[in-house]
């Protein structure tokens, strides 16, 4: 079974006023362990698609199955809980709770999952080391660079052991060095923990690292390529 199966997804914003057709019949399957980029021009519907795949928004039409669960069937509270246990998120920027340290931010999601204290600490430290900021675990987001903050966000997303991680332009605010570093880390996590990543990007360098590139335009998938060698 695919991890994600999106069937004939439509999304219309402002249905009552000036309708915007953001997605026009998207079908997409994502398998475990994929490292997939969603690309396309600005306004093509990347963010809309990722929000729907991540259970942050509901499609106007069509169904999303996550390992067989139709997201439509969940109440809003069940959906929050579903996200907590199944989906990791890395947003474009300001991902972290500003008053908590890197370690506390990573532990936070484990606390939501009710993981015991000791295990939480261990796991948070392990992941922060894996993303390369072992020396900054007690720093608050304000004391970290943008790249470092994004790495903490990746660590936090991984900590919850989700079925897949959604990242909407995670490198948009990073310089090329930090972009490279973050992608390296994501790719490594993909190899090491076999975590599934789906990310939207404009960035050619990011596309170059992807194992699969899904191209979207005007709310429709117009290309889907897999690169075996990467």
């Amino acid at each position: 079974m695919s991890i994600i199966e999106a069937k004939n997804i439509y999304k219309v914003y402002n249905e009552t006023k000036v309708p915007v057709n953001a997605l026009n019949g998207v079908d997409l399957k994502i398998e475990e362990g994929e490292f997939t980029a969603i690309v396309g021009p600005s306004g093509s519907g990347k963010t809309t698609l990722l929000n729907i795949l991540g259970g942050l928004d509901l499609p106007s039409k069509g169904d999303i199955f996550i390992e067989g669960t139709n997201l439509k069937d969940l109440s809003s509270r069940q959906l929050i809980n579903f996200r907590l246990h199944n989906i990791g998120f890395v947003f474009q920027s300001y991902n972290l709770i500003p008053v908590l340290t890197a370690k506390e931010n990573t532990e936070f999601i484990l606390e939501l999952q009710k993981v015991p204290k000791k295990e939480r600490m261990q796991k948070a430290l392990e992941l922060l080391e894996a993303v390369g900021i072992a020396d900054k675990v007690d720093h608050k987001p304000g004391q970290l660079s943008g790249g470092q903050q994004q790495r903490v966000a990746v660590a936090r997303a991984l900590a919850s052991q989700p079925r897949f991680i959604i990242a909407d332009e995670p490198t948009a605010n990073l310089d090329s060095r930090s972009t490279n570093e973050l992608l390296e880390i994501m790719a490594e996590m993909n190899r090491k923990y076999h975590s599934t990543f789906i990310f939207a990007t404009h960035d050619q360098r990011v596309m170059d690292k992807a194992h699969r590139i899904v191209t979207i335009d005007d709310g429709k998938i117009i290309g889907d390529e897999t690169f075996k060698g990467r």
């Binding site: 991540g54 942050l56 509270r77 929050i80 809980n81 996200r83 907590l84 246990h85 990791g88 998120f89 947003f91 300001y94 991902n95 972290l96 709770i97 500003p98 999601i109 939501l112 999952q113 936090r156 997303a157 919850s160």
Partner: peptide, 14 residues
């Protein structure tokens, strides 16, 4: 708001 939105996104109940 943004911070709270992120907290709800990653799975914190309102």
């Amino acid at each position: 708001r943004r911070q709270y939105a992120i907290m709800v996104s990653i799975g914190m109940e309102r």
